[in-house]
């Protein structure tokens, strides 16, 4: 939106009013979208199979789990925090939900409620320790990462938990109007998270806390409470992803979600979320997740060796962070 030119808004000479849309300005704002588009075009030339509908659906479905987690992680990073526990919480949710989802034992609501509850609780603990205990988020969530994985192994005795209820499996395998359920959830949660972050008080406070915590306090924001809520929301999304993933592989596994936290953080950072806080968007993170998805899928299609895949992924993340720091310097 722009200001009505008829209004008498004086413009100081230091700020160019008729800002020309320059290349670097566009790159700053939409750089990663261009990268995504360029990758899609490149891949479609390199592999005939890439643009097939089924393949595109696969890409989105494959990335939907990490993508959903990344949305919560984005919010956490905007507040200058970090969440290293996502992968382990996926595992804990997975084994607990699976253990309650055997056919003929409990109604579907029980495993789902238990899973969501674990997600929210672990997120709450992360937030509580960070906000009230004044412990760096890196350490608090590192602790949760270890503890949740340990709990998952303890709970499951180190074994996968199979034999799951058909109705539970719908979470991972079902479709709505022909669209796989995880993709529907990815879109739905994407919209909800985007609105939450851009249009609500909760969202504005999230940015404010990350932008300047001290100023946020003085502006009358209950910083601790909102911080805890943000981590709890991240935990909730992690739980949703964890249950859908469990349903998709028909098995609750204590080793599930290994390194997901890093993929989620990578998606957020590639999507322009600043580790210095105060900056980041959900559409950006979705683009970041899709870039990772297209990269993984494309390299698999081309049969590129796993070693090279890792190197390329690392290079892209480093480049994204570099772009981010350049952007900040310019501003």
């Amino acid at each position: 939106m722009s200001i009505n030119p008829n209004e008498s808004v004086a413009v100081s000479p230091s700020i160019p009013h008729h800002r020309k849309i320059t290349f670097s300005h566009l790159m700053n704002k939409y750089g990663m979208l261009f990268v995504l588009i360029a990758m899609v075009i490149l891949m479609s030339f390199l592999s005939d199979a890439f643009l097939a509908t089924q393949n595109l659906i696969n890409i989105v479905r494959q990335i939907s789990f990490v993508g959903i987690i990344a949305m919560g992680v984005t919010m956490v990073i905007i507040t200058t925090g970090i969440d290293l526990s996502s992968g382990s919480v996926v595992a804990l949710v997975s084994v607990v939900a699976a253990s309650l989802a055997h056919p003929g034992e409990y109604p579907l609501i029980i495993p789902i409620a238990a899973g969501l509850c674990i997600g929210i609780c672990t997120g709450f603990i992360n937030g509580f320790i960070t906000a009230k205990g004044k412990i760096p988020a890196f350490i608090a969530t590192l602790g949760m990462m270890t503890a949740a994985r340990g709990l998952a192994l303890l709970y499951s005795g180190g074994r996968p938990i199979g034999n799951l209820n058909e109705s539970f499996l719908v979470l991972g395998k079902g479709t709505i109007l022909g669209i796989p359920f995880p993709i529907v959830m990815f879109i739905l949660i994407g919209i909800i998270s985007h609105l939450l972050l851009s249009k609500t008080k909760f969202g504005k406070y999230t940015y404010a806390i990350g932008g300047n915590e001290q100023a946020a306090k003085i502006a009358g924001i209950n910083v601790d409470r909102y911080r805890i809520m943000i981590y709890a929301y991240a935990g909730l999304l992690t739980a949703i992803a964890g249950m859908m993933l469990t349903a998709r592989i028909s098995s609750g596994q204590p080793s599930l979600g290994l390194m997901y936290e890093l993929d989620a953080i990578a998606a957020a950072v590639i999507g322009g979320t600043s580790l210095n806080g105060g900056i980041g968007t959900i559409p950006g993170t979705i683009i970041g997740a899709l870039i990772i998805g297209v990269l993984n899928n494309g390299l698999d299609l081309l049969g590129v060796s796993s070693y090279w895949q890792q190197i390329l992924k690392g290079a892209i993340i480093a480049a994204a962070v570099l772009l981010d720091s350049r952007k900040n310097k310019r501003a």
Binding site: S47, D48, A49, F50, A52, Q54, N55, N58, Q62, P160, L245, R248, I249, S251, Q253, S255, L256, L258, N296, N297, D300, L301, L302, G303, S305, S306, Q309
Partner: peptide, 22 residues
């Protein structure tokens, strides 16, 4: 030949991509 890190979920993803490769 590619890695799926011992994981069922990653094996599934890898296989999907291989199927799509034609």
């Amino acid at each position: 030949e590619a890695t799926a890190n011992w994981q069922r979920s990653e094996g599934m993803t890898l296989m999907e991509n291989w199927i799509q490769s034609g």
